[in-house]
Protein backbone atom coordinates (compact mmCIF):
# COMPACT_ATOMS: atom_id res chain seq x y z
CA UNK A 1 0.00 0.00 0.00
CA UNK A 2 2.62 2.51 1.04
CA UNK A 3 4.81 1.62 -1.92
CA UNK A 4 1.94 2.32 -4.23
CA UNK A 5 1.38 5.65 -2.52
CA UNK A 6 5.00 6.58 -2.78
CA UNK A 7 4.91 5.82 -6.48
CA UNK A 8 1.85 7.95 -6.84
CA UNK A 9 3.69 10.79 -5.23
CA UNK A 10 6.69 10.33 -7.48
CA UNK A 11 4.44 10.38 -10.49
CA UNK A 12 3.04 13.64 -9.27
CA UNK A 13 6.33 15.42 -8.93
CA UNK A 14 6.62 15.48 -12.70
CA UNK A 15 3.00 16.21 -13.54
CA UNK A 16 1.32 19.56 -13.30
CA UNK A 17 -1.61 20.09 -10.95
CA UNK A 18 -4.99 20.21 -12.69
CA UNK A 19 -6.20 22.93 -10.35
CA UNK A 20 -3.97 25.30 -8.43
CA UNK A 21 -5.46 27.65 -5.87
CA UNK A 22 -3.09 30.17 -4.41
CA UNK A 23 -3.68 32.62 -1.54
CA UNK A 24 -7.42 32.60 -2.01
CA UNK A 25 -9.29 35.00 0.25
CA UNK A 26 -13.01 35.48 0.29
CA UNK A 27 -15.10 37.99 2.15
CA UNK A 28 -18.69 39.08 2.25
CA UNK A 29 -20.23 42.48 2.64
CA UNK A 30 -22.98 42.57 5.17
CA UNK A 31 -25.18 45.24 6.59
CA UNK A 32 -24.63 45.48 10.29
CA UNK A 33 -26.81 48.16 11.77
CA UNK A 34 -28.84 50.36 9.49
CA UNK A 35 -26.94 51.41 6.42
CA UNK A 36 -23.38 50.47 7.22
CA UNK A 37 -21.80 47.61 5.34
CA UNK A 38 -18.97 45.66 6.87
CA UNK A 39 -16.63 43.16 5.36
CA UNK A 40 -16.73 39.69 6.85
CA UNK A 41 -13.78 37.48 6.02
CA UNK A 42 -14.64 33.81 5.50
CA UNK A 43 -11.56 32.36 3.81
CA UNK A 44 -8.06 33.77 4.10
CA UNK A 45 -4.86 32.83 2.31
CA UNK A 46 -5.99 29.41 1.30
CA UNK A 47 -3.84 27.39 -1.09
CA UNK A 48 -4.38 23.94 -2.51
CA UNK A 49 -3.62 21.83 -5.55
CA UNK A 50 -5.74 19.06 -7.06
CA UNK A 51 -4.13 16.39 -9.22
CA UNK A 52 -5.71 14.10 -11.78
CA UNK A 53 -6.25 10.59 -10.46
CA UNK A 54 -6.35 11.77 -6.85
CA UNK A 55 -8.94 12.47 -4.21
CA UNK A 56 -8.16 15.53 -2.15
CA UNK A 57 -10.32 15.97 0.94
CA UNK A 58 -10.90 19.38 2.49
CA UNK A 59 -12.00 18.72 6.05
CA UNK A 60 -13.43 21.39 8.32
CA UNK A 61 -16.33 21.82 10.70
CA UNK A 62 -19.70 22.58 9.16
CA UNK A 63 -20.62 26.20 8.77
CA UNK A 64 -16.95 27.18 8.61
CA UNK A 65 -17.27 28.37 5.02
CA UNK A 66 -15.48 25.56 3.26
CA UNK A 67 -18.41 25.02 0.89
CA UNK A 68 -17.74 28.51 -0.40
CA UNK A 69 -14.44 27.24 -1.72
CA UNK A 70 -16.42 25.11 -4.18
CA UNK A 71 -18.60 28.07 -5.10
CA UNK A 72 -15.50 30.20 -5.64
CA UNK A 73 -13.92 27.68 -8.01
CA UNK A 74 -17.16 27.39 -9.98
CA UNK A 75 -17.77 31.12 -9.99
CA UNK A 76 -21.23 30.92 -8.40
CA UNK A 77 -20.69 33.20 -5.41
CA UNK A 78 -23.36 35.75 -4.51
CA UNK A 79 -22.84 39.28 -5.70
CA UNK A 80 -21.98 40.70 -2.27
CA UNK A 81 -18.74 38.75 -2.04
CA UNK A 82 -15.17 39.70 -2.82
CA UNK A 83 -12.61 37.20 -4.01
CA UNK A 84 -8.84 37.62 -4.22
CA UNK A 85 -5.89 35.38 -4.95
CA UNK A 86 -5.23 33.28 -8.01
CA UNK A 87 -6.73 30.12 -9.45
CA UNK A 88 -5.26 28.14 -12.32
CA UNK A 89 -6.84 25.33 -14.28
CA UNK A 90 -4.53 23.32 -16.56
CA UNK A 91 -1.97 26.07 -16.20
CA UNK A 92 -4.40 28.74 -17.36
CA UNK A 93 -5.76 31.46 -15.16
CA UNK A 94 -9.40 30.85 -14.14
CA UNK A 95 -11.18 34.07 -15.01
CA UNK A 96 -14.92 34.50 -14.38
CA UNK A 97 -15.54 33.93 -18.12
CA UNK A 98 -13.40 30.81 -18.10
CA UNK A 99 -15.28 29.50 -15.06
CA UNK A 100 -18.57 29.92 -16.79
CA UNK A 101 -17.25 28.14 -19.85
CA UNK A 102 -15.93 25.17 -17.88
CA UNK A 103 -18.73 24.95 -15.33
CA UNK A 104 -20.77 21.78 -15.77
CA UNK A 105 -18.46 20.65 -18.60
CA UNK A 106 -14.91 20.22 -17.32
CA UNK A 107 -15.57 21.23 -13.74
CA UNK A 108 -18.58 19.66 -12.07
CA UNK A 109 -20.12 20.20 -8.66
CA UNK A 110 -21.90 17.47 -6.74
CA UNK A 111 -24.02 19.63 -4.46
CA UNK A 112 -25.12 18.91 -0.90
CA UNK A 113 -28.71 18.18 -1.74
CA UNK A 114 -31.33 17.93 -4.46
CA UNK A 115 -32.41 21.47 -3.74
CA UNK A 116 -29.80 22.37 -6.35
CA UNK A 117 -31.80 20.49 -8.99
CA UNK A 118 -34.58 22.12 -10.97
CA UNK A 119 -37.73 20.98 -9.13
CA UNK A 120 -39.86 20.98 -12.28
CA UNK A 121 -37.55 19.08 -14.62
CA UNK A 122 -37.43 15.33 -15.05
CA UNK A 123 -34.36 13.71 -13.52
CA UNK A 124 -33.06 12.23 -16.78
CA UNK A 125 -33.25 15.60 -18.53
CA UNK A 126 -31.24 17.22 -15.78
CA UNK A 127 -28.63 14.50 -15.78
CA UNK A 128 -28.15 14.91 -19.53
CA UNK A 129 -27.78 18.62 -19.22
CA UNK A 130 -28.08 21.05 -22.08
CA UNK A 131 -26.59 19.10 -24.95
CA UNK A 132 -26.93 19.74 -28.65
CA UNK A 133 -29.81 18.04 -30.44
CA UNK A 134 -27.67 15.72 -32.54
CA UNK A 135 -25.89 14.47 -29.43
CA UNK A 136 -29.17 13.68 -27.69
CA UNK A 137 -29.20 10.01 -28.69
CA UNK A 138 -25.61 9.41 -27.63
CA UNK A 139 -26.25 11.21 -24.37
CA UNK A 140 -29.41 9.24 -23.69
CA UNK A 141 -27.49 6.02 -24.20
CA UNK A 142 -24.80 7.12 -21.80
CA UNK A 143 -27.36 8.21 -19.27
CA UNK A 144 -29.03 4.78 -19.40
CA UNK A 145 -25.65 3.15 -18.96
CA UNK A 146 -24.68 5.24 -15.98
CA UNK A 147 -28.09 4.75 -14.36
CA UNK A 148 -27.69 1.00 -14.77
CA UNK A 149 -24.26 1.08 -13.22
CA UNK A 150 -25.60 2.93 -10.19
CA UNK A 151 -28.60 0.68 -9.88
CA UNK A 152 -31.11 3.37 -10.81
CA UNK A 153 -34.15 2.00 -12.62
CA UNK A 154 -35.27 3.59 -15.86
CA UNK A 155 -38.37 4.83 -14.05
CA UNK A 156 -36.16 7.02 -11.87
CA UNK A 157 -35.29 9.07 -14.94
CA UNK A 158 -38.92 10.03 -15.31
CA UNK A 159 -39.27 11.19 -11.72
CA UNK A 160 -39.11 14.74 -10.44
CA UNK A 161 -36.43 15.62 -7.87
CA UNK A 162 -38.81 15.66 -4.88
CA UNK A 163 -39.85 12.07 -5.57
CA UNK A 164 -36.34 10.72 -5.02
CA UNK A 165 -35.34 9.10 -1.75
CA UNK A 166 -32.15 10.29 -0.06
CA UNK A 167 -29.97 7.50 -1.42
CA UNK A 168 -31.40 7.77 -4.92
CA UNK A 169 -30.89 11.52 -4.94
CA UNK A 170 -27.27 11.03 -4.00
CA UNK A 171 -26.75 8.63 -6.93
CA UNK A 172 -28.55 10.95 -9.32
CA UNK A 173 -26.28 13.81 -8.31
CA UNK A 174 -23.22 11.62 -8.83
CA UNK A 175 -24.50 10.54 -12.26
CA UNK A 176 -24.89 14.18 -13.25
CA UNK A 177 -21.20 14.72 -12.61
CA UNK A 178 -20.27 11.57 -14.54
CA UNK A 179 -22.38 12.53 -17.54
CA UNK A 180 -20.60 15.79 -17.90
CA UNK A 181 -17.27 14.01 -18.57
CA UNK A 182 -15.74 16.49 -16.17
CA UNK A 183 -12.05 16.43 -15.36
CA UNK A 184 -12.42 18.12 -11.99
CA UNK A 185 -15.18 17.04 -9.64
CA UNK A 186 -16.01 18.91 -6.48
CA UNK A 187 -18.24 17.08 -4.02
CA UNK A 188 -19.73 19.30 -1.34
CA UNK A 189 -20.68 17.47 1.90
CA UNK A 190 -21.98 14.36 0.17
CA UNK A 191 -22.17 12.13 3.24
CA UNK A 192 -24.28 13.41 6.14
CA UNK A 193 -27.25 11.31 7.13
CA UNK A 194 -26.20 8.27 5.15
CA UNK A 195 -26.04 4.91 6.89
CA UNK A 196 -22.82 3.01 6.66
CA UNK A 197 -23.69 1.04 3.54
CA UNK A 198 -24.83 4.07 1.53
CA UNK A 199 -21.84 6.00 2.81
CA UNK A 200 -19.35 3.43 1.57
CA UNK A 201 -21.18 3.20 -1.71
CA UNK A 202 -21.09 6.96 -2.24
CA UNK A 203 -17.42 7.15 -1.36
CA UNK A 204 -16.69 4.37 -3.81
CA UNK A 205 -18.17 6.48 -6.62
CA UNK A 206 -15.67 9.22 -5.91
CA UNK A 207 -12.78 6.79 -5.79
CA UNK A 208 -13.96 5.36 -9.14
CA UNK A 209 -13.96 8.79 -10.70
CA UNK A 210 -10.42 9.42 -9.50
CA UNK A 211 -9.33 6.05 -10.87
CA UNK A 212 -10.73 7.05 -14.23
CA UNK A 213 -8.41 10.04 -14.22
CA UNK A 214 -10.51 12.78 -12.67
CA UNK A 215 -9.29 15.06 -9.95
CA UNK A 216 -11.77 14.88 -7.07
CA UNK A 217 -12.08 17.46 -4.31
CA UNK A 218 -14.15 16.10 -1.45
CA UNK A 219 -15.36 18.85 0.86
CA UNK A 220 -16.59 17.37 4.12
CA UNK A 221 -16.74 17.75 7.89
CA UNK A 222 -16.45 13.99 8.29
CA UNK A 223 -12.79 13.12 8.67
CA UNK A 224 -13.57 9.42 8.88
CA UNK A 225 -15.24 9.47 5.46
CA UNK A 226 -12.28 11.42 4.10
CA UNK A 227 -9.84 8.88 5.50
CA UNK A 228 -11.57 6.07 3.66
CA UNK A 229 -10.92 7.26 0.12
CA UNK A 230 -8.65 10.30 -0.02
CA UNK A 231 -5.04 10.45 -1.07
CA UNK A 232 -4.44 13.73 0.72
CA UNK A 233 -6.36 15.58 3.39
CA UNK A 234 -6.33 19.33 3.86
CA UNK A 235 -7.46 20.51 7.30
CA UNK A 236 -9.58 23.66 7.12
CA UNK A 237 -9.80 25.70 10.33
CA UNK A 238 -11.08 29.23 10.94
CA UNK A 239 -10.94 30.16 7.25
CA UNK A 240 -7.60 28.73 6.30
CA UNK A 241 -5.77 25.45 5.76
CA UNK A 242 -3.59 24.45 8.70
CA UNK A 243 -2.18 21.28 7.25
CA UNK A 244 -2.20 19.13 4.17
CA UNK A 245 -1.28 15.59 5.07
CA UNK A 246 -0.91 12.35 3.19
CA UNK A 247 -3.41 9.68 4.09
CA UNK A 248 -0.74 7.40 5.54
CA UNK A 249 0.21 10.08 8.07
CA UNK A 250 -3.01 9.34 9.92
CA UNK A 251 -2.05 6.37 12.07
CA UNK A 252 -1.30 5.36 15.66
CA UNK A 253 -1.30 8.42 17.90
CA UNK A 254 -0.92 10.73 14.96
CA UNK A 255 2.82 11.20 15.49
CA UNK A 256 3.35 11.67 11.73
CA UNK A 257 0.91 14.55 11.61
CA UNK A 258 2.46 17.98 11.47
CA UNK A 259 -0.02 20.39 13.07
CA UNK A 260 -1.18 20.10 16.69
CA UNK A 261 -4.79 20.68 15.58
CA UNK A 262 -4.73 17.78 13.13
CA UNK A 263 -3.33 15.59 15.87
CA UNK A 264 -6.07 16.71 18.26
CA UNK A 265 -8.69 16.01 15.61
CA UNK A 266 -7.28 12.54 15.02
CA UNK A 267 -7.24 11.76 18.74
CA UNK A 268 -10.81 12.98 19.15
CA UNK A 269 -12.19 10.32 16.82
CA UNK A 270 -14.34 7.76 18.63
CA UNK A 271 -12.27 4.86 17.30
CA UNK A 272 -9.13 6.49 18.65
CA UNK A 273 -8.92 8.13 22.05
CA UNK A 274 -12.21 10.07 21.95
CA UNK A 275 -10.37 12.84 23.71
CA UNK A 276 -11.05 16.55 23.32
CA UNK A 277 -8.89 19.62 23.61
CA UNK A 278 -10.35 22.68 25.28
CA UNK A 279 -11.78 25.75 23.60
CA UNK A 280 -13.68 26.36 20.39
CA UNK A 281 -12.94 27.41 16.85
CA UNK A 282 -12.67 31.22 16.83
CA UNK A 283 -15.33 33.21 15.03
CA UNK A 284 -14.09 35.61 12.38
CA UNK A 285 -14.42 38.66 14.63
CA UNK A 286 -12.49 36.91 17.38
CA UNK A 287 -9.32 36.61 15.32
CA UNK A 288 -6.60 39.06 16.20
CA UNK A 289 -3.99 38.76 13.51
CA UNK A 290 -1.96 35.92 14.95
CA UNK A 291 -2.11 32.21 14.29
CA UNK A 292 -5.78 31.16 14.15
CA UNK A 293 -5.04 28.22 16.44
CA UNK A 294 -3.15 30.28 19.04
CA UNK A 295 -5.82 30.11 21.78
CA UNK A 296 -5.92 26.32 21.85
CA UNK A 297 -2.36 25.46 20.90
CA UNK A 298 -0.17 23.35 23.18
CA UNK A 299 3.12 24.33 21.54
CA UNK A 300 2.56 28.06 21.06
CA UNK A 301 5.21 30.66 21.63
CA UNK A 302 4.82 34.39 22.09
CA UNK A 303 5.80 34.90 18.47
CA UNK A 304 2.70 32.99 17.29
CA UNK A 305 0.29 35.71 18.43
CA UNK A 306 2.05 38.31 16.26
CA UNK A 307 1.29 37.14 12.74
CA UNK A 308 -0.12 34.25 10.74
CA UNK A 309 2.50 31.55 10.11
CA UNK A 310 3.41 30.77 6.51
CA UNK A 311 2.44 27.48 4.89
CA UNK A 312 5.60 25.40 4.61
CA UNK A 313 6.46 21.99 3.19
CA UNK A 314 7.54 19.36 5.72
CA UNK A 315 8.08 15.67 4.97
CA UNK A 316 5.78 15.46 1.98
CA UNK A 317 3.00 17.59 3.41
CA UNK A 318 2.17 21.20 4.10
CA UNK A 319 1.77 22.85 7.49
CA UNK A 320 1.02 26.34 8.74
CA UNK A 321 2.90 26.45 12.06
CA UNK A 322 6.00 28.20 13.36
CA UNK A 323 6.99 25.53 15.81
CA UNK A 324 7.31 22.35 13.82
CA UNK A 325 10.22 21.35 11.66
Amino acid sequence: MSVEMAMNNDDREGSEALLKVKDLSLSFFQYTSGLRQTELKIISNMSLEAYSGEVLAVVGSSGSGKSLLAHAILGILPSNSRLSGSMEYKGQSLTPEKKEELRGKEIALIPQSTTYLDPLMKVSEQVMGSSEKKDKEVMRKRQTEIFQRYNLKAAVGRMLPHELSGGMARRVLVSTALMSSAKLIIADEPTPGLDERSLDETLKYFKDMAKKGCAVILITHDIEAALKISDRIAIFYAGTILEEARIEDFRNDGEDLRHPYTRALWNALPQNRFQAIKGHQPMQDELNGGCVYFERCSIRTEHCSKDIPQLKRISGGLVRCNNVS
Binding site: Y31, T32, Q37, E39, S79, D285
Partner: peptide, 23 residues
Protein backbone atom coordinates in the same frame (compact mmCIF):
# COMPACT_ATOMS: atom_id res chain seq x y z
CA UNK B 1 -12.68 46.86 11.35
CA UNK B 2 -15.91 48.13 9.87
CA UNK B 3 -15.37 49.83 6.58
CA UNK B 4 -18.07 51.48 4.61
CA UNK B 5 -17.99 50.26 1.05
CA UNK B 6 -19.76 50.92 -2.18
CA UNK B 7 -20.76 48.25 -4.65
CA UNK B 8 -21.78 48.68 -8.28
CA UNK B 9 -22.45 52.37 -7.76
CA UNK B 10 -23.88 53.94 -10.91
CA UNK B 11 -24.63 57.44 -12.08
CA UNK B 12 -25.51 60.12 -9.61
CA UNK B 13 -25.94 57.65 -6.80
CA UNK B 14 -22.37 56.41 -7.02
CA UNK B 15 -20.82 56.06 -3.62
CA UNK B 16 -23.95 54.72 -1.99
CA UNK B 17 -24.53 51.03 -1.43
CA UNK B 18 -27.72 49.39 -2.61
CA UNK B 19 -29.42 49.70 0.72
CA UNK B 20 -28.58 53.37 0.98
CA UNK B 21 -29.93 53.94 -2.51
CA UNK B 22 -33.10 52.05 -1.71
CA UNK B 23 -33.66 54.02 1.44
Amino acid sequence: MSTSVALNGKGMLRGLNLRQRTI
